[in-house]
Amino acid sequence: MVWFAVVRRFSEEEIGVGLSGFGVFFVLFGILLYFDSVLLAFGNILFVSGLAFIIGLRRTAHFFFQRQKLRSSAAFLGGVALVLLRWPRIGMLVETYGFVLLFKSFFPMAFGFLATALNIPFLTTLSGSSSSMV
């Protein structure tokens, strides 16, 4: 009797979300461990590769190299390069500046989503809010 393993094939977007999630985890863990350059570099590489898996290589290149985003892309990628060259504190400062400039148009949408997520009845009972749905 032959046993076959059932293997689920993941889509590129699912792999990208996983890579980006691990990238954010490693960056936060690297910051927590007093700017460990190896963890920060690994997290940066995972985050950027996850972004490329999620939206594709061509769209990633188009996102980073738009004319109006060149300064912020240079800051972000320069910060990644500084972290890879083992200057983690300066690299993370430069990278954070570039990240904020790159994703500043995304922040209002993310904050709006968080505001609506706080109105979910299950979450409001967990948070201890006294507002009711009735």
Rank of each mutant, 00 (worst) to 15 (best):
Val6Pro: 14
Val6Glu: 11
Arg8Leu: 12
Arg8Thr: 13
Arg8Asn: 07
Phe10Asn: 09
Ser11Val: 06
Glu13Val: 10
Gly16Arg: 00
Val17Thr: 10
Val17Pro: 07
Val17Gln: 12
Gly18Arg: 06
Gly21Ile: 01
Val24Phe: 02
Val24Met: 05
Phe26Gly: 01
Phe29Pro: 10
Ile31His: 10
Ile31Glu: 09
Ile31Gly: 14
Leu32Gly: 15
Leu33Gly: 13
Asp36Pro: 13
Ser37Phe: 07
Leu39Cys: 05
Ala41Thr: 08
Asn44Phe: 05
Ile45Ala: 13
Phe47Gly: 06
Ala52Glu: 13
Phe53Arg: 02
Ile55Phe: 07
Arg59Asp: 09
Thr60Phe: 03
Phe63Tyr: 00
Gln66Pro: 03
Gln66Trp: 00
Arg67Trp: 13
Ser73Phe: 02
Leu77Ile: 02
Gly79Glu: 00
Val80Cys: 12
Leu82Phe: 00
Leu84Ser: 01
Leu85Asp: 01
Leu85Lys: 00
Arg86Gly: 13
Pro88Arg: 02
Pro88Phe: 04
Gly91Glu: 02
Met92Val: 07
Met92Glu: 05
Val94Met: 03
Glu95Pro: 07
Glu95Ile: 03
Thr96Glu: 10
Gly98His: 03
Gly98Ser: 02
Phe99Thr: 08
Lys104Val: 14
Phe106Thr: 15
Phe107Asn: 09
Pro108Phe: 02
Pro108Asn: 03
Met109Phe: 12
Ala110Ile: 08
Ala110Cys: 04
Ala110His: 00
Gly112Trp: 09
Phe113Cys: 02
Phe113Thr: 08
Leu114Ser: 06
Ala115Ile: 11
Thr116Ser: 10
Ala117Val: 06
Ala117Lys: 02
Leu118Pro: 04
Leu118Val: 10
Asn119Lys: 15
Pro121Met: 01
Phe122Ile: 06
Phe122Ser: 09
Leu123Lys: 05
Gly128Lys: 00
Ser130His: 12
Ser131Val: 14
Ser132Gln: 12
Met133Gln: 14
Val134Asn: 15
Val134Phe: 15
Val134Glu: 15
